[in-house]
């Protein structure tokens, strides 16, 4: 086949909504874009363990502690299968870590905000996992097979996370005055960063058209953001919490909520490393990696020794 016919074959797979598999030919840009997107997603899971991990030792009840611990562990699992999915595209996990640690690779900016009260565990589950699900459900039908299959499992667990987050918020909102205050305070802090999770406005998102063509992306940033605002506003009513946006108003004509202007200056600053926890999060990961080096080296050395001994035993 010529390059031209390779491309035609690839396009036809995309067009008939079938999946591209690791051994299929794919355009370089498709491969690069996917590596960037999947590794960014994997990094987000791993960095995302930190803000919630911050409350494991302080969870208010043993049941909440067990659920939180299991949840953060799920995120490690998601990181694991996303790194594996990215590896099928010809990059190693160590290379992806290097990109994360050097600051070359990005992760979701939301995790650069601090978790200062227990209610943040509720708000993250409800809002952050809620926004993540909206971004991710369409990816269960994305064109790259290993990614799509990983996302099916990720989404199942994320929807459980979202429910448990909402349930924490519900318990707080039905609780004492101070608990309600705690819930509202967390909502106020996490609402806007959650809206930013969908990425820059469509007009400033140059890759959207190509990504939609490739079915790496299935809805635009603004479409998903609107859906999130509509759904979450209704959920806030159930909780008796106030959406921290004075411009939020139902628009009968559009059939959607209108909402206020997002502070994109803040968004870009956090992306660039100026968020409240960027350095702290990245340092925690780098420290874990560097402190773990002698452990990984030992495991490798031991495996080598064992292999050599087994080989010798066979000869003898």
């Amino acid at each position: 086949m010529t390059v031209h016919s390779f491309q035609e074959h690839f396009d036809s797979i995309i067009d008939r909504e079938s999946t591209i598999e690791p051994r299929d030919w794919m355009p370089d840009d498709y491969r690069k874009t996917l590596i960037r997107q999947i590794s960014q997603h994997a990094h987000s899971e791993i960095i995302g363990m930190l803000p919630e991990g911050n409350w494991i030792t302080r969870a208010p009840t043993l049941r909440r502690k067990a659920v939180l611990l299991a949840k953060v562990q799920d995120e490690a699992g998601h990181g694991l299968y996303l790194y594996s999915a990215a590896e099928t595209l010809g990059i190693t996990r160590d290379e992806m870590y290097d990109q994360l640690h050097s600051g070359k690779a990005k992760y979701s900016s939301i995790f650069n905000y601090p978790t200062v009260t227990w209610a943040d565990m509720g708000a993250i589950g409800w809002l952050v996992d809620g926004a993540a699900i909206m971004n991710q459900v369409p990816l269960c039908r994305t064109s790259y097979g290993p990614y799509a299959r990983a996302m099916v499992r990720v989404c199942k667990e994320e929807s459980f996370h979202q429910r448990q987050g909402f349930e924490i918020m519900l318990t707080l909102s039905k609780g004492t005055e101070i608990q309600k205050k705690m819930a509202q305070d967390a909502f106020n802090r996490w609402w806007w960063p959650s809206l930013m999770m969908f990425g820059p406005p469509d007009a400033e998102s140059p890759h959207t058209a190509q990504s939609m063509r490739w079915r790496i992306k299935r809805f635009t940033n603004d479409e998903l953001r609107q859906k999130f605002v509509d759904v979450t506003t209704e959920q806030a009513k159930v909780l008796g919490l106030e959406v921290p946006d004075k411009d939020l108003k139902w628009n009968e004509e559009r059939g959607h909520y209108d909402f206020g202007t997002i502070n994109w200056d803040e968004f870009w600053n956090v992306v660039k490393g100026n968020g409240p926890c960027n350095k702290q999060r990245l340092n925690a990961r780098k420290t874990a990696w560097e402190d773990g080096k002698w452990v990984r080296d030992a495991a490798m050395a031991y495996a080598e020794k064992r292999k050599a001994r087994n080989a010798q035993a066979k000869v003898a």
Binding site: V72, Q73, A76, R93, A288, G292, V295, A299
Partner: peptide, 20 residues
């Protein structure tokens, strides 16, 4: 549980959390 998120390698992070 203090190890969660800080393990020397991802698979062991999961294993130690499981044990916790």
């Amino acid at each position: 549980s203090e190890w969660c998120g800080h393990g020397p390698v991802l698979e062991q992070d999961i294993a130690v959390t499981n044990t916790a």
